[in-house]
């Protein structure tokens, strides 16, 4: 019997972009509102889970040809590296700082080094979760 899941695939093609946009929004909302790198990484990984559910693993690998183990390692390096960078300026480990710049259209904007740390956390979570999902779903 030929399996037909055109409804699931059509819904997925739209919903994946909504989920990815929401992940980016959660990542940048994490300074003064609920959100942050960890939740953004989990939501990002759930988009990959939905892609794997609607299509198959070969298509997901072809669409996102990264090595997710290396992405997780890069994230861990980034997170620890921003923590170690504070030692140069004689501050304690993981000290973060920020400056306030005024841009022409946006106005006052806080540029914080904690964004780099959060990016590291998000990369780690994406790498680990997608690796685990792809590892346990190969049918063995």
């Amino acid at each position: 019997m030929k399996i037909n899941d055109v409804i699931l695939q059509t819904v997925t093609k739209i919903a994946v972009f909504i989920i990815l946009t929401f992940a980016v929004d959660l990542f940048f909302a994490g300074h003064h509102h609920p959100g942050g790198g960890f939740v953004a990484g989990l939501v990002f990984a759930s988009a990959f889970v939905l892609l794997g559910l609607a299509f198959d693993l070969e298509t997901v690998r072809k669409g996102a040809p990264f090595d997710f183990k290396k992405l997780g390692a890069l994230g861990g390096f980034l997170a620890v590296g921003t923590g170690l960078l504070a030692l140069i300026w004689d501050a304690s480990f993981l000290t973060q700082t920020f400056i306030t710049v005024s841009l022409p259209i946006i106005g006052e904007l806080d540029v914080a080094t904690v964004t780099l740390f959060e990016a590291g956390v998000a990369f780690t979570v994406i790498g680990v979760v997608v690796t685990v999902i792809m590892g346990i779903s190969e049918g063995r």
Partner: peptide, 12 residues
């Protein structure tokens, strides 16, 4: 429905 959650390769 199918007995598998994420397929490795669709046979279609």
């Amino acid at each position: 429905e199918r007995g598998v959650v994420i397929e490795l390769k669709r046979d279609r």
